[in-house]
């Protein structure tokens, strides 16, 4: 915490924390649950868009923990003080959403004698998401900072090349 860009959102039951510095724009959250996570809206998180169970399920899929959640009973006093808006979500079957085109994760065949290949996912109309052990050599032939997960720009317009910065959405990049 401490980053002024961090945000928290609650429905009175759980609180979702948004830590933008950790986001690699894997787009998992809004592909699964646009009713709650909609980057085109302000605020971009609408805690009333789906039931608590569904929100926590999708938050758990965030690959970088740029969004995490906590039960409100587990909040620290600082987190409680930061709570801006508390509305109880009312269960309404019409707002329960179905999965939107979530790519199936391929079966990973574990074999102790073989090293697991680095997983490179092409996100629809989005970046190249990389997970596993890998090395990146920049355009200047120098090795870039090692990470376990990153996303490369595919739209050509990122301002933090070679990485994705979410610009593909603004420019309307399509596959």
């Amino acid at each position: 915490m401490g980053d002024p860009r961090n945000r928290q959102y609650t429905n009175g039951e759980i609180t979702v924390f948004w830590i933008p510095s950790k986001c690699i724009h894997a787009t998992t959250c809004f592909r699964e649950l646009i009713e709650v996570f909609n980057p085109g809206r302000r605020p971009w998180v609408n805690m009333e868009g789906a039931p608590t169970r569904r929100i926590s399920e999708v938050v758990n899929k965030c690959p970088t923990q740029a969004i995490i959640w906590k039960h409100n009973s587990d909040l620290t006093s600082e987190e409680l003080a930061a709570q801006r808006h508390v509305t109880k979500y009312e269960e309404n079957p019409e707002t329960i959403t179905e999965n939107i085109e979530q790519p199936e994760k391929p079966e990973i065949v574990e074999n102790s004698t073989r090293i697991k290949p680095t997983n490179i996912r092409i996100m629809k109309d989005g970046p190249i998401v990389v997970e596993g052990k890998f090395k990146v050599i920049g355009a200047d032939n120098r090795e870039l900072k090692p990470t376990q997960m990153t996303s490369f720009c595919r739209c050509g317009d990122s301002r933090s090349m070679p990485y994705c910065d979410g610009t593909h959405r603004k420019v309307g990049f399509t596959d």
Binding site: V130, K133, F134, K135
Partner: peptide, 22 residues
């Protein structure tokens, strides 16, 4: 390291080594 990514200046991203593209 499993995979090696090489960023080509003003060009593509080369991927080699142990990887798979999904």
């Amino acid at each position: 390291n499993n995979a090696l990514f090489k960023v080509f200046a003003n060009g593509p991203l080369e991927v080699s080594g142990n990887f798979r593209v999904v």
